[in-house]
Amino acid sequence: MHNQIDFFNSIKSTIPDYQNLAQTVAEVLTISTNEAYKKIRGNSILNLQQIIRLSDHFGIPFLYKPDQLPTVTFDYLSVDQEIPNMLLYLKDLLKNLQVIHLSKSKHITITTDDIPLFHFFKYPELTCFKLFYWSDSVMNADTKFDPSIFTDEIISLAKALNQLYLEIPSTEIWAKDTVHGTIEQIRYAYEARYISPILAEQIIEQVRYCLTDMNMYAIASKKTIDPSHTFNWYNCDVLGSISYLIDFKDRMACYNRFNTFNYLRTEDQPYCLQTKNWMQGLIMKSISFSGQGEKHRNKFLYHAFAECDNLIAEINRA
């Protein structure tokens, strides 16, 4: 019964304030509003078909776990690492982010040793390069990087994802070498002749623009002019994993990166709470880059910009 009440609380968090939960549930299940209220309160049990219908309609899983088994259920999108399938990946990512964006209360906390993908989605060539590098195509010696192989739809989806993320309050905990990984990817692609010197320099410049954006967000402690789009940025020497925790106030969801760019997703609340506590512990050990953390932020960005400049100098000397 408790699982059913939690299920309806999760559904409620996804619908607008003006929308009546009981009426919406009644329409989806084709039952009376009175019966819908009973199910929401837990006085009437949902059958399997009704659970499936509600889960499919609202995109909310019904989670059941026997108390004696310490198990966690994860969902994941199976996408082959091929360029044509990146469209499917971005569409699924957009659907997930739209659900978060529409929720009344939300906050994203990220731990990462790579620049969060939502930031570089603002820049077309950088976006295309990262998607190219993630794909199996980078392992094929005959494949050269060309941004034109990515459709306008992919670029539009990436920009939409960037805009949505800017409007969601967030906290990011970066590792010491978070920028280094992307710089090394560009260096490898250039040295292996997957990308031309001109394109390599253009992509490096866009990494610089991305870092300049980060600096602006950190100074203002927000990502847009809207004060509700808060941003907190931290630096931690040791992280251990790339995780995204979504806090909806009355429930949480956790996304863990795997296989380079894919993710495992769960709404198992004990697992999410454990992840939240771990992240809060990391913050306590981290250096703040936001607001008054100017000295440490400038030092971090100085080294990141220096890496970009050094790679451009290497390319120009070649």
Rank of each mutant, 00 (worst) to 15 (best):
I198S: 10
S221C: 12
Y64W: 11
R193C: 07
E201I: 03
I115C: 02
S286A: 09
A313L: 12
G42M: 08
K38A: 13
N232G: 09
R53V: 12
I312D: 11
E172G: 01
S137E: 08
L273M: 13
D92Q: 06
G59C: 09
S78V: 05
I203Q: 01
T143E: 15
R257H: 04
Y209W: 06
R257Y: 10
K39P: 11
I283W: 04
L264H: 01
Q49E: 12
M139Q: 11
E82A: 01
T112E: 04
F62T: 05
L97F: 07
S55H: 01
D114H: 13
S135W: 01
M214V: 12
Q163A: 12
F289A: 08
L245G: 02
F150P: 00
N43P: 13
N85S: 07
H119L: 14
A158R: 08
P116M: 05
K176I: 12
W233N: 08
A189L: 06
A160K: 14
L164G: 09
S137V: 03
I108E: 05
F62A: 08
D213K: 01
N9A: 05
V179R: 03
K130P: 06
V179Q: 11
D213F: 10
A36V: 06
N262I: 01
S221K: 13
I60M: 06
I186M: 04
I15E: 05
K104Y: 06
V79A: 03
Y263W: 07
D268Y: 09
A192T: 11
L164Y: 10
N43D: 15
S290E: 14
N262K: 00
L93C: 08
G240K: 04
N162H: 08
I315D: 06
Q81N: 07
Y76E: 01
D80I: 03
V99F: 10
F58H: 05
F62Y: 13
A22N: 10
S32Q: 10
Y271K: 00
F7M: 11
K249G: 10
K176G: 08
L131M: 01
A36H: 09
M279W: 02
E205K: 15
R257T: 08
G42N: 04
N20F: 14
N85K: 05
D268H: 12
H303W: 12
R251V: 05
A160G: 10
Q292V: 11
K223G: 00
L117M: 10
N277R: 00
T151H: 02
L311H: 03
A26W: 13
E27S: 15
C254D: 00
Q292H: 14
S32P: 06
L29K: 14
F289T: 08
L90A: 00
K38D: 13
D113R: 08
E191R: 15
Y244Q: 06
W174E: 11
F74P: 07
L29S: 14
N256I: 12
I287P: 09
S196D: 03
S221R: 13
H57Y: 14
S286L: 01
S10A: 14
S55E: 07
I115Q: 02
I195C: 03
E167H: 12
G281R: 00
Q292A: 15
R187F: 08
D56P: 01
K159F: 10
D250T: 13
L301R: 14
P227Y: 14
L63C: 12
T73A: 10
I287H: 08
H229A: 10
I100N: 03
Y37W: 14
P61S: 04
Y188L: 15
Y255L: 01
K249T: 10
Y64N: 10
L102Y: 15
R251I: 04
G240W: 03
H57I: 04
L93W: 02
T143K: 09
